[in-house]
């Protein structure tokens, strides 16, 4: 049963907007045996941390990605999560293309018998995604376009999982 379930593990990378609520409902419905489901939604901020002046309103954002490698890296993240925690299922969705403020960018959901594994695996997938999945954000403000800089905090969060096994 476990093997068949793992075939459902899904990675989706697309330009179309998605509905996080509908995705979570679908994920929950396909995991009737899981006692715990954790999810994360990353959405587009409406102000810039990187453009000058800091805090400037963002009119839109463009996400560039590396087709092929992005899907491959996200699949590898789910495989790694499955090796570390007793998961029933996991799903990740990531957008590319042009987004406007408050649109969802990324969705991660994990299902397990108990909440510890679901919470930890969800956090792990997001932390590693931030440093491994080949996506790049470019924000557009009144001042023009600015490539978002990588943050040291993300690198440190990802590094903490290197020595941590559940």
């Amino acid at each position: 049963m476990t093997t068949a379930d793992q075939m459902n593990w899904s990675v989706r990378v697309h330009a179309e907007r998605f509905d996080p609520g509908a995705e979570l409902n679908a994920f929950t419905a396909r995991n009737p045996n899981a006692g715990a489901i954790a999810s994360f939604v990353g959405q587009m901020r409406d102000f810039s941390r990187d453009s000058a002046p800091s805090g400037a309103p963002i009119s839109s954002m463009t996400l560039e990605y590396y087709p092929g490698m992005a899907e491959k890296q996200l699949s590898a993240l789910l495989t790694e999560a499955r090796e570390r925690w007793p998961l029933d299922d996991a799903s990740v969705i990531h957008r590319f293309g042009t987004l406007t403020p408050s649109e969802p960018i990324v969705f991660v959901a994990t299902a397990s018998a108990h909440r510890d594994a679901a919470f930890s695996a969800c956090e792990f997938v997001m932390d590693w995604l931030k440093t491994k999945a080949p996506f790049w954000k470019k924000e557009t403000t009144d001042a023009g376009g600015t490539w978002v800089a990588a943050h040291d905090g993300d690198t440190m969060r990802a590094a903490k999982w290197r020595n941590t096994k559940s």
């Binding site: 997001m126 790049w136 800089a149 990588a150």
Partner: peptide
């Protein structure tokens, strides 16, 4: 072989 800046997805 691909070259790119540090990634900023998520």
């Amino acid at each position: 072989v691909a070259f790119f800046p540090p990634v900023t997805g998520g």
